Simulated assay, not measured.
Amino acid sequence: MTDSRPEPAPDPPAVPFATMLRSGIVANAICLPVLAIVFWAINGPKGGGSAAIGVLVALVFFAGGLGILQHVPDDNTMMLMTSALAVYLGQVIFLGVIILLFSERDWIDGWAFGLSVLVTALVWQVAQVAAYLRAPKAVYSELATDTAEGSTR
């Protein structure tokens, strides 16, 4: 006798890193020209270039942090949350140091650079949370359902 039940769909990943990464990059890809144009209009080419550099630096930091978190096992929620907090704290501290180092250089507009990094960080976080909330999440464990039915794998 053959089993006519359809194959179950694969479970979505517990933490949708790819969706969160894509959302953050798309949101800030829109932010980049807007900030560059605004600061170009305010402070000329130096302001526009500094804003673009600030957005790109922040994007690299936040995408890198998400890349690090992809390698943390997501079966232990406390480990994942602790790792996420540690990575975020490290990113904020490192970005602060970069802002302080770049703000005193002659070739960069410190205000445009710093405000662009700040705006990029805020937009990244909002986009990441929105993507996480929209992403599909497993509501139950397939193993628990199979055990309840009496079947074993």
Rank of each mutant, 00 (worst) to 15 (best):
108 I>R: 08
134 R>S: 12
4 S>L: 13
48 G>Q: 06
67 G>Y: 10
78 M>Y: 07
91 Q>T: 07
63 A>L: 10
58 A>R: 04
60 V>I: 14
148 A>Y: 14
120 T>S: 11
125 Q>V: 10
72 V>P: 06
110 G>H: 06
25 I>Y: 12
67 G>T: 09
48 G>Y: 09
116 S>W: 03
142 E>C: 00
43 N>R: 15
136 P>T: 07
77 T>S: 11
114 G>H: 01
129 V>T: 11
3 D>V: 07
109 D>H: 10
90 G>H: 04
31 C>N: 15
117 V>P: 02
11 D>S: 14
22 R>N: 09
19 T>V: 05
128 Q>N: 11
138 A>P: 05
129 V>P: 00
17 F>T: 00
120 T>F: 03
74 D>A: 11
73 P>Q: 12
37 I>M: 13
150 G>V: 05
103 S>L: 02
22 R>Y: 05
43 N>H: 15
43 N>M: 03
49 G>V: 03
19 T>A: 15
149 E>D: 11
44 G>H: 10
127 A>C: 08
41 A>D: 06
27 A>K: 11
45 P>R: 14
6 P>K: 02
63 A>I: 13
39 F>H: 08
131 A>V: 09
21 L>W: 01
95 L>T: 06
46 K>V: 12
51 A>Y: 06
138 A>F: 02
131 A>P: 08
57 V>Q: 01
150 G>E: 08
25 I>A: 15
105 R>S: 10
42 I>M: 11
87 V>M: 07
111 W>E: 09
103 S>W: 08
68 I>C: 08
116 S>I: 03
6 P>T: 01
135 A>L: 05
139 V>Q: 12
35 L>S: 07
25 I>W: 12
1 M>H: 04
62 F>A: 00
91 Q>F: 02
77 T>G: 05
121 A>R: 05
1 M>I: 05
8 P>K: 01
121 A>E: 02
104 E>F: 13
3 D>A: 01
38 V>D: 04
14 A>C: 00
40 W>D: 05
10 P>T: 00
42 I>D: 06
145 T>P: 00
63 A>G: 06
41 A>I: 08
123 V>M: 06
125 Q>K: 11
5 R>K: 02
5 R>C: 00
99 I>V: 15
136 P>C: 04
87 V>R: 07
28 N>V: 08
10 P>C: 02
13 P>F: 05
80 L>F: 15
15 V>F: 14
26 V>K: 11
128 Q>L: 11
4 S>E: 09
21 L>A: 15
75 D>L: 05
93 I>P: 03
53 I>R: 04
58 A>T: 13
